[in-house]
Design a binder for these strands. Structure first.
Lengths: 211, 211
DNA sequence: TGTACATCAGTGAACGCGCGTTCACTGATGTAC
DNA sequence: TGTACATCAGTGAACGCGCGTTCACTGATGTAC
């Protein structure tokens, strides 16, 4: 049997995902962990402290994602890399969205969590930054357009992944597009754009009111 | 002075945005609305009922956004339309994100809200659907590429707007890119793509392992 | 090996507080004659 | 106009319940001699 502390963290994590942060009471957590309520206070100062440790120790890290980006860049095409990035990101957001979102119900907890995350030099903008950094490398290498707004491209890709996680977690919602279909579609759209084929690559599609 | 019912809804809406759903107690709502706690129960069956009415009557509608899309399509360029869409969507998500997110702390409330929204024929996928529908019109008109994946393009644009709202609501986060900069950057990137200029428009950038 | 004590993980039961909700009530406004 | 009654918006005070937290305790395991 796992040590009690780990069981408590697992239980709290599990309950936050199922019955929600608001209904994850000390009684329920203790029941799920198979211990007494008093035991919670042997390992954590109070309930908020417990939740902060769940967030720190149980929320998926985006380190692996970032690692997958920075290595073997040139081994594959840009499109292949983008597909891999989108797949990873979509999974990451899918596994962390509902817990992350529920923090907005308790701004105090959210703030404390944000401080902790900030102190570790991390933050919710990190995935976008990482993708943007990857794209800058590709731009230097001449594998994407030299005037590419890498931040915008990264925001588009990561945003779509996060929104997909949101739609997935929303009840009674239509099933989301399968990842095997979603990831290539995003990569392809960002890479090629939606401009009609006969438009010259260098010209701006809209010129405003120039005569 | 406003009628009591409206003041109560305003107070609850306000508190959900500031101190959060979890701390928006009947006592606080009554205080903010300038009435007794008992008065809440003259207008709403219980606290959950009150919150559901806040969501229904105080959350911004996306009707205006949808309306702005469907009229005067051809009066402007595709890029101009996309910029307008992104601006509207970003504002919409910014004003509804924190309340919407906090519902994930109370899955029962979220489910009830989802049922209500579903019964009205709406849902969180509606903005994406609306943008996708707009893009299909442009595709029929030949103003964007005939093989455009309109759903993917819409998911990219709306996702980036929602993620921006998330980053904006997250504490201690770096300031988000101003809308006047953000909206044109997204529109331009989706329209043009990030492919290098010398790549022929018709050819697929990656061909996999074809010899 | 046996005995006395120390350490440690964990508990049952109680605590007080804040919550959502209800109840009998009040004072102001409208209405009939 | 005055009087008696009805309606209505809203309240003060209390209610019981569930919550997070604490306290004195227990039984198992380790340790010294």
């Amino acid at each position: 049997m796992k040590p009690a502390r780990a069981r408590i963290l697992d239980a709290a994590d599990q309950l936050m995902r199922t019955i929600g942060l608001a209904r994850a009471t000390t009684k329920e957590i203790a029941r799920e962990a198979g211990c007494s309520e008093a035991a919670l206070y042997k390992y954590f100062a109070n309930k908020e402290d417990l939740f902060l440790h769940v967030l720190e120790e149980r929320l998926p890290r985006l380190g692996p994602l970032l690692a997958e980006l920075t290595e073997d860049l040139t081994g594959h095409s840009v499109e292949e890399n983008l597909v891999a990035i989108v797949r990873q990101a979509a999974r990451f957001y899918e596994s962390s969205f509902s817990i992350g979102a529920s923090l907005f119900a308790e701004p105090t907890l959210l703030r404390r969590h944000a401080e902790g995350v900030h102190a570790l030099g991390s933050g919710p903008h990190k995935p976008i930054d990482a993708v943007s950094a990857y794209l800058r490398v590709e731009r230097e290498a001449g594998r994407i357009a030299p005037d590419t707004d890498t931040e915008a491209a990264a925001a588009l890709l990561m945003g779509a992944c996060m929104q997909r996680a949101f739609l997935h977690a929303f009840p009674d919602s239509e099933p989301v597009r399968p990842l095997d279909d979603f990831a290539p579609a995003l990569a392809r759209t960002v890479l090629r754009g939606i401009r009609p084929e006969d438009t010259p690559a260098g010209s701006a599609p809209s010129q405003g009111s120039t005569p």
